[in-house]
Nucleic acid binder design. Structure first.
Lengths: 244, 244
DNA sequence: CGTCCGTTTGAGGATCATCAATGTCCGTGG
DNA sequence: CCACGGACATTGATGATCCTCAAACGGACG
């Protein structure tokens, strides 16, 4: 449903939520260069580099929108606190992701670091002004936003599954495809805790644990230290992912 | 989406998916005017008006991206076909919504009309070019896209619930807030079938039916003809929605 | 070596999916 | 005008899956 309930100002309902813009050449190893040097320069001129230890809150739900952030190093999570006190993780954020989604001038999610993190902090109004002047730059953000929508839709498909092992396998599959955490020798890094995983997958902590056990027992996936996974039986893994 | 099929360009991974831009003054009764007359004129100059009967396919998943659409009248659904043959409805589309989300130059969802529909069809490449020239116009699209992300996140929260009645109640709540279908005397219109609802809520058709029965039996919601709902006990309704 | 936090494992209860049958609405044709 | 047929919706019974509560386990760190 895309009907905003905005009252007076046309676009006061949200600052753009931005994610995935690679504006720093060092951000990843790929050769893609989405922005011109001038655009990159304009962005970095606005940005402040911030370093944060694990478990730091970047901003809280309902806080006034002030900055847009771009992850440079580390992994973060964006989540919402539900009335019952439970949490739902909307997304994990990786280097290159842009975040700071707001509604009516307030952030909609709380964002917290999982690992040590380095990120760019850009004042929202300055960024908005820049985007209004530079349509090409804005188009990069627009493209990244659409990517985020696709990720959200995949998340929805995961959540609609009933079996815990299948959800977990789909999550692993997404991580692997994005290669966001880096796959060292076939090992997929899982920086987040079982609790984070449970809150992202819409499962209880115990169910996630049982799912890993089941995947291991069935010889489909290997886990190491709880923070790394390797797909052992590719055929059955793919079958599980696609068996919905 | 809006990624023209330009091969050489850096951001070929996706064109933006656009939805929710109100570029037609007649689209709804609200006084909001997001675009200037000139922008409106530029858009309408590119658009073709299309009328479709119920159950028409607007475009299919994996088809080559060619047009972006904006709903003017009627209700549609965007869904994906899963390997098992099951369907997952990603979103319902209402007047003012923009759709045509693509990835790698192919639509990611199938879009089908539910009611009789009138929509604008805009060639993707022409729209992209226009957006690249007009940063203000593009910003409206960007804002609408962020709105779509928030909707997707709400959808995820709904899907993470375990109880069918709660999911259904949250859906009703969203419909009511958006007032998309028009609430005539407190009645919320439900143009979609129970099957559509089930595929959106991640439930079986039977569970949706049982959920409506339960809500009626408990005196919380009234249903009429299966395509209209009215909240009888507001307090308990809100409690149900917020009890997660 | 003991504590703390996160994880794993177990048993019982709750909820939904599935399979199957019945019921309802509505358009069609006799 | 009424009877039939098909699509859609409801209701019932059974089995599968997960959540909750509870307890045991493990590694990190002082």
């Amino acid at each position: 449903m895309a009907r905003p309930a905005q009252a007076t100002h046309p676009h006061n309902d949200s600052g753009p939520s931005l994610r995935g813009v690679h504006f720093d050449k060092e951000t990843d190893g790929s050769a893609q260069t989405l922005l011109t040097d001038e655009q990159r320069q304009q962005l970095t001129a606005l940005a402040t580099l911030i370093s944060l230890p694990p478990r730091s809150i970047v901003y809280r739900e309902d806080a006034d929108l002030a900055w847009i952030f771009i992850a440079r190093q580390g992994v973060l999570k964006a989540f919402r606190e539900l009335p019952s006190g439970k949490r739902r993780v909307a997304a994990f954020l990786f280097p290159g992701d842009v975040f700071g989604l707001a509604e009516n001038g307030r952030y909609v999610n709380t964002v917290q670091t999982i690992t040590s993190t380095v990120l760019y902090r850009i004042p929202n109004d300055a960024l908005t002004e820049l985007l209004r002047r530079d349509a090409d730059l804005q188009y990069q953000f627009l493209a990244k936003i659409t990517h985020e929508i696709r990720e959200g839709q995949r998340h929805s498909i995961v959540l609609a599954r009933r079996d815990a092992a299948g959800r977990f396998a789909m999550f692993l599959s997404m991580l692997e495809k994005n290669q966001l955490t880096g796959t060292r020798g076939g090992w997929i890094q899982l920086p987040m805790s079982r609790t984070d995983l449970a809150e992202y997958l819409g499962l209880s902590l115990e169910s996630v644990s049982r799912a890993t056990s089941a995947l291991t027992r069935r010889g489909i996936v290997d886990f190491e230290g709880g923070h790394a996974a390797r797909i052992v039986d590719r055929a059955r893994f793919e079958k599980l992912v696609n068996t919905l």
